[in-house]
């Protein structure tokens, strides 16, 4: 297909099902958004805004409401400033730290990102900072082999801060362009584990002023409202600079990132679309917002 699948075009399809913009229309819109994990409060704000706008502009035909919906959704996501998904790359060594709760896709995303950066001609190294979970170091090593980048590791059970220290020294000595640091998954309510993460970040800061240059929080798109608390707590502890929304190849939509962007001002930088090396894409707000409605639109088509 051509570029007819622009977001506004698709929403037009959606609203075409309703001739009139009535309560029922708004109710269905509400359900679509809640079903996408956008969250009750955000949905209510959005729908109230929409209702007001519809009244103000005196719109009764659903076709006219489509542009308003797309405007509002993207507006809720990014306010007035358009997002930039580029990573904060340095002249010398760029350090990227991955954080997040258990099983969301940190290690896999590191493999994918290493592949992407290597493809751009950069020398990439990985730090096996998850010394806790069974098989975590080996998992990163497999990714290192797959992509063809070096992995700095210590024995299972060793101090993650010490691994980082080693890896930073090594990356500097070898004049690597990028060092990507894996960490063990941890639930944000575990105070001791969050302290450990803070320490890991401090070691990086001390060793290289200005680093880590990116702290990426991996969020599983399947996660519901708890993702907002995850983002808030990890931001407090590690000053998260961006989100990777993983597992978007499933049927979940990860709508909570709207609230996260809106309330905490953390942008999504990448999305994960599978388990393979090249299943990583830069985030595109328009495309994403369209995806929230995709099922409904397809049903109609």
């Amino acid at each position: 297909t051509k570029t007819r699948d622009s977001f506004s075009g698709k929403v037009n399809d959606l609203v075409a099902r309703y001739r009139k913009v009535d309560e029922e229309f708004f109710e269905e819109l509400e359900e679509i958004l809640i079903g996408a994990d956008v969250g009750f409060e955000t949905v209510m704000t959005l729908v109230d805004d929409l209702k007001m706008e519809v009244k103000r502009r005196n719109i009764s035909d659903s076709k006219e409401v489509q542009s308003v919906i797309s405007e509002k959704l993207v507006e809720i996501y990014q306010g007035n400033d358009a997002d930039h998904t580029e990573l904060n790359m340095q002249e010398g060594l760029t350090v990227i730290l991955f954080v997040g709760v258990n099983g969301v896709g940190k290690t896999t995303t590191i493999g994918k990102l290493a592949n992407k950066l290597k493809g751009e001609g950069k020398t990439v190294m990985l730090a096996a900072g998850d010394t806790f979970r069974a098989g975590a170091i080996e998992q990163l090593e497999v990714w290192g082999e797959r992509v063809g980048v070096e992995v700095i590791k210590q024995a299972e059970g060793s101090d993650p801060a010490a691994v980082m220290f080693d890896a930073l020294r090594s990356a500097k000595a070898k004049k690597a362009d990028v060092l990507i640091c894996d960490t063990a998954g941890r639930l944000q309510n575990k105070v001791n584990l969050m302290n450990e993460l803070e320490k890991v970040k401090r070691v990086i800061e001390r060793e290289i002023p200005g680093a880590p240059h990116e702290v990426l929080l991996a969020l599983d798109a399947t996660t519901g409202q708890n993702a907002l608390i995850q983002a808030k707590t990890f931001k407090e502890v590690t000053n998260v600079t961006g989100i990777v929304l993983t597992k978007l190849d499933g049927t979940a939509k990860g709508g909570i990132v709207l609230a996260i962007r809106n309330e905490l001002n953390i942008p999504v930088k990448f999305v994960g679309l599978g388990e393979k090396m090249d299943d990583l894409q830069e985030f595109d707000a328009d495309k994403y917002v369209y995806g929230l409605f995709a099922d409904v639109i397809e049903e109609k088509e």
Partner: peptide, 8 residues
């Protein structure tokens, strides 16, 4: 199943 799973 992960207890944090949302609507899906």
């Amino acid at each position: 199943v992960d207890a944090m799973t949302g609507q899906d």
